[in-house]
Design a protein around this nucleic acid. Structure first.
Lengths: 120, 120
DNA sequence: GCTTGACTTCGAGCGCGCTCTAAGCGGCAA
DNA sequence: TTGCCGCTTAGAGCGCGCTCGAAGTCAAGC
């Protein structure tokens, strides 16, 4: 028996609404149904959802994720392109981390300044 | 003589529209005007805008930035509270970087996997 | 004097990523 | 049987952060 949408929601951290939305826009294939028409997720679905949430949390736009998902559905002959997409994305994430780290330094500086100002 | 909005835009990386918007919502005080009513920014304004863009790029919501800006206008007796806001924000940024770094590892793993799959 | 162009205000509009609603169905417990 | 709950669909609505548009003013150049 499959995993209910509530359980999938709990384990993925995505709301049931969002899970249906992701399916509607093709981020995830059409999920299996139980006899009464309710969605029945598999462990593989959850693994894919987990990967999707990582792409999202690293700032990949939904449209790009859709493109990636579409390539994945097309099968193994698209692995090179998928790899290129991930490589480009990785580069953006690295840039992002670098920028955040720099800004963190500014925050440290500012906080120190306040601390010493207060101490005076 | 002051800095025009176009020049402020170029130097801050924010559009002229966004500069006016930031002023409208109180992120920046009412900017000085030249005799014909055009905005004339100062170097201090630009420094503040630069700090604002760092708060934004590190993910602080506009509403929180407004609160911070308001405290700043209220003067030196609000430094302790401003420091606390920045400290809390710094913590979120650190968490953010940690999460991004973790996700970067997943990307590396996935890319390696594609690379070895293609090589076979 | 007239055009041009950059500025002004302020409200409307937009793109993204959800998030919710309305209306309906299926299954179970009392 | 009735009530209830959670699921279903498709489309509408929302919050955020801009972004744009319309209508008007002003200064400079021809």
């Amino acid at each position: 028996m499959g995993i209910t949408i509530q359980e999938a929601s709990r384990r993925s951290g995505l709301s049931a609404h969002t899970l249906r939305y992701y399916e509607r826009i093709g981020l995830i294939h059409e999920v299996e149904r139980d006899p009464s028409g309710h969605r029945a997720y598999t462990e593989a679905d959850l693994a894919w959802l987990d990967f999707l949430t990582r792409l999202r949390s690293t700032g990949m736009p939904i449209a790009d994720m859709c493109r990636y998902a579409e390539l994945r559905r097309r099968g193994p002959e698209t692995t090179a392109e998928r790899r290129r997409i991930l490589e480009a994305h990785r580069e953006r994430v690295r840039t992002r981390i670098a920028r955040l780290t720099e800004d963190l330094g500014i925050l440290d500086y500012k906080i120190d300044f306040y601390a010493t100002t207060e101490a005076r």
